[in-house]
């Protein structure tokens, strides 16, 4: 459904509340920073519908995200009914993670996904090397294509020798 008027003040406030929910698996970043919160729509007094998109189709965190959003919009947003819908289209990509989200991931020891497209347009940019989040070295090596969650791969730094998680690019 498309509305002409854009989000209302209430919708913006609810969006901030929902967007501020921490990611259940990587609690250093919020759902807004992860880029999975699509739409917040108030469709009646005390009734709101939230659209979420999963990072991976089978991501089990979506259930925890749903419960957390329902909780915060009831407790702090004053809503009575909170519907959370999962939408698949357009598919989430790692380019949807905000710059702030990337910075927090790196600070937390997870190499952020490299940006594949400039925010302004569809032009692909060349991916640089994956840098070690501990020492910053660009000399890192893939240990395993899969890691603790579907969205990460395991790498090791060839300089400081530390293994680290890399949030895989999904474009």
């Amino acid at each position: 459904m498309v509305t002409d008027s854009g989000p209302t003040e209430l919708e913006q406030r609810l969006r901030e509340l929902a967007g501020g929910v921490p990611d259940p698996e990587l609690p250093v970043i919020s759902l807004a920073e992860l880029g999975v919160l699509r739409r917040v729509h108030v469709y009646g007094p005390g009734r709101v519908e939230v659209e979420l998109t999963p990072t991976y189709t089978g991501c089990p965190a979506i259930e925890a995200m749903t419960a957390d959003i329902q909780h915060v919009l009831r407790e702090q947003g004053g809503m009575e009914q909170v519907l959370v819908r999962t939408v698949l289209f357009p598919a989430w990509t790692t380019d949807d993670i905000t710059a702030e989200g990337r910075r927090k991931l790196a600070e937390h020891g997870v190499a952020p996904p490299r940006v594949s497209r400039e925010p302004a347009g569809p032009v692909p940019v060349e991916l640089g090397s994956i840098r070690c989040p501990n020492c910053g070295s660009g000399r890192t090596k893939l240990l395993s294509r899969f890691s603790s969650t579907a969205c990460k791969a395991l790498r090791r730094c060839e300089d400081c020798q530390e293994p680290f998680d890399h949030f895989k690019e999904l474009t």
Binding site: V87, F89, P90, A91
Partner: peptide
């Protein structure tokens, strides 16, 4: 929609 997501 599912295929577009799952193909990746």
């Amino acid at each position: 929609p599912l295929a577009g997501k799952a193909v990746k």
